[in-house]
């Protein structure tokens, strides 16, 4: 039994391996996707590792002499803000905070999405009907406004509260995506064959159907990640994300609402804005390259 499991494992590795191979081939052909990938890796690791080296008190003692410094003065690469805090360090911390929300949100909505999407399409019938009504309903309520309202009602929250609140409405898209894919996949005779081979519904869903969606899953994850960065920074930009003491990239961009800052001290909001753009754009390029890989494999099958 254990041995059988081992074989299955090595085979699923072989499958993952072939996806990896196809993905590597695609990224080698698509230089922009390649650059995006390395950029993303560097930013994510750089930000998480780098922020560990920033002392806790880096921002606590406000330096009145160093306020509103332009970039490249007094050793501040990106200048300082109105409180004399170093902009570069701020951006690193803010990026870490933003990613600490958007990464868990992505994981939550992809997990919920694939789970509900598979189940809903596979079982069909009443189960599917009820979930479709729920998603229909959630997609007609004014999502952003309700999110903001919820965040004002829950006035004392942690990163995790924020993760759950943002996920509350965002899983709908990924669920519908996987539901549609599963519906198409379910029509194949191999699903019937599996049933006749004595496999349980759960085994058919996860061992038979899911491997056929996995390439799409990776592509969709990249695109959802980009969307969640936008959502989190957008909410923070409006002032309802993390508290001011834990800045997000959106909080930094929010400084641009002051026309004075926007025109006179662009270094306070430009770097954060560029970082948001660069992260989203690179994730889009990665997602598209992965989608091409997924489509090729789909057509191959």
């Amino acid at each position: 039994m254990a041995k059988a499991k081992k074989i299955e494992q090595s085979e699923s590795q072989a499958h993952a391996h072939s996806f990896l191979k196809a993905a590597v081939r695609e990224f080698k052909r698509d230089k922009i996707a390649m650059i995006s990938f390395f950029f993303l890796v560097i930013v994510v690791f750089g930000v998480f590792i780098g922020s560990m080296f920033i002392p806790r008190d880096a921002f606590s003692n406000v330096d009145i002499m160093d306020t509103n410094l332009a970039p490249f003065t007094n050793g501040h690469i990106l200048g300082t803000d109105d409180g004399g805090r170093d902009e570069f360090l701020l951006v690193v911390i803010a990026a870490r905070n933003s990613l600490s929300i958007s990464i868990p949100v992505t994981i939550v909505i992809m997990a919920v999405g694939i789970f509900l999407g598979l189940m809903s399409a596979y079982y069909g019938g009443f189960f599917d009907w009820i979930w479709m009504r729920i998603t229909d309903y959630l997609s007609i309520v004014p999502t952003l406004m309700i999110l903001l309202t919820l965040l004002t009602i829950i006035n004392n929250y942690s990163i995790w509260t924020l993760v759950w609140v943002i996920s509350l409405f965002s899983w709908i898209g990924s669920m519908r995506f996987f539901r549609a894919l599963t519906f198409a996949e379910r029509e194949n005779d191999y699903v019937k064959a599996s049933k006749l081979s004595g496999s349980s519904s759960l085994a058919i869903m996860w061992k038979q159907i899911f491997p056929n969606l996995s390439s799409q899953f990776y592509a969709q994850t990249a695109l959802a990640f980009a969307g969640n960065i936008g959502l989190e920074t957008g909410i923070s930009y409006l002032g309802y994300g993390l508290p001011y003491t834990t800045p997000s990239l959106g909080t930094l961009v929010n400084k641009a609402t002051d026309p004075e800052v926007m025109t006179q001290s662009p270094w306070m909001w430009l770097p954060a804005s560029f970082l948001i753009l660069a992260l989203s754009v690179s994730l889009i390029f990665i997602g598209q390259a992965l989608r091409r890989v997924a489509d090729q494999r789909q057509s191959l099958a």
């Binding site: 695109l223 980009a226 969307g227 960065i229 936008g230 959502l231 920074t233 957008g234 930009y237 959106g250 961009v253 641009a256 026309p259 926007m262 025109t263 662009p266 909001w269 804005s273 948001i276 753009l277 989203s280 754009v281 994730l283 889009i284 598209q288």
Partner: peptide, 30 residues
């Protein structure tokens, strides 16, 4: 379209406002 459809709108709006509103002064800013 795939890029413009995926990047967060508010960042774009801010860039547009900064460029055409404040820097070039072509349009009112508020």
């Amino acid at each position: 379209n795939s890029i413009t459809g995926g990047i967060p709108a508010f960042v774009i709006y801010i860039f547009m406002l900064f460029l055409f509103g404040f820097t070039l002064n072509w349009f009112p800013t508020t």
